[in-house]
């Protein structure tokens, strides 16, 4: 297998293979929890934790897992870390845990995490898998932060709970409701493709 430089392995998750904008993976939490920056950030951190540790475990035991039951084994590993993240949030950040509701347990079916195990961790060394997981989750957190910043600023006029828009601003309530999530993400996807096309034609 041709090995890329380690930096590139990290950067591909942030831009060229960004899970949200390029691969359209993990759409459910992306749309559901980005009505406020703090929720988006908490979801990003929880997903990062799960992805990092699942990649660590899967890449270290990849030779022990029989091929036929690999998907089921990955799911058990992922579900274990999701349970840990869920219990941790409930114990230390009950308010955030309430906001996120069923979406923390639902990290277990986030296709991003299972996808990385199947496509990367199961056939690469521990170190490379960790770098890959770190890159992918940075890309995921970045996407969540962009989306939730736009929605919180336009939808409630605040950023992380502090007022940033002046008195003249009337909040666009639609942005914190479900339709705002779909429309914002749709426009962002278009923008990302536009930037990509522009930078290609310049080259």
């Amino acid at each position: 297998m041709p090995t890329k430089p380690i930096g590139q392995e990290f950067l591909k998750g942030v831009w060229s293979e960004n899970p949200i904008f390029r691969q359209l993976l993990g759409m459910c939490p992306t749309l559901a929890v980005t009505n406020a920056v703090v929720n988006g950030f908490a979801m990003g951190m929880a997903t990062t934790f799960v992805l990092l540790f699942s990649s660590l475990v899967v890449s270290s035991i990849k030779n022990l897992i029989p091929k036929q039951v690999r998907i089921a084994s990955y799911i058990v590993v992922i579900a274990t870390f999701v349970t840990m993240a869920d219990r941790f949030l409930q114990a230390f950040f009950p308010a955030i845990s309430d906001n996120l509701g069923p979406y923390v347990p639902l990290i277990v079916v986030n296709c991003l995490i299972l996808g990385r195990q199947e496509a990367f961790s199961s056939r690469n060394t521990v170190g490379r898998s960790l770098v890959d997981a770190l890159g992918m989750s940075s890309g995921f957190v970045l996407g969540l932060l962009v989306l939730s910043s736009i929605r919180e600023i336009l939808g409630s006029g605040t950023f992380l709970g502090t007022q940033v828009m002046g008195d003249w601003f009337k909040p666009w309530t639609i942005m914190v409701l479900p339709p705002g999530a779909f429309i914002t993400l749709g426009i962002l996807l278009g923008l990302v493709i536009l930037i990509e096309q522009k930078s290609k034609s310049r080259r």
Binding site: L24, P178, P179, G180, A181, F182, I183, L185, G186, I187, L189, G190, L191, I193, L194, Q197
Partner: peptide, 13 residues
């Protein structure tokens, strides 16, 4: 740039 997933998401919105 909106072809495909972009417009689908806006329609869903």
């Amino acid at each position: 740039p909106l072809k495909g997933a972009g417009i689908a998401l806006i329609v869903a919105g």
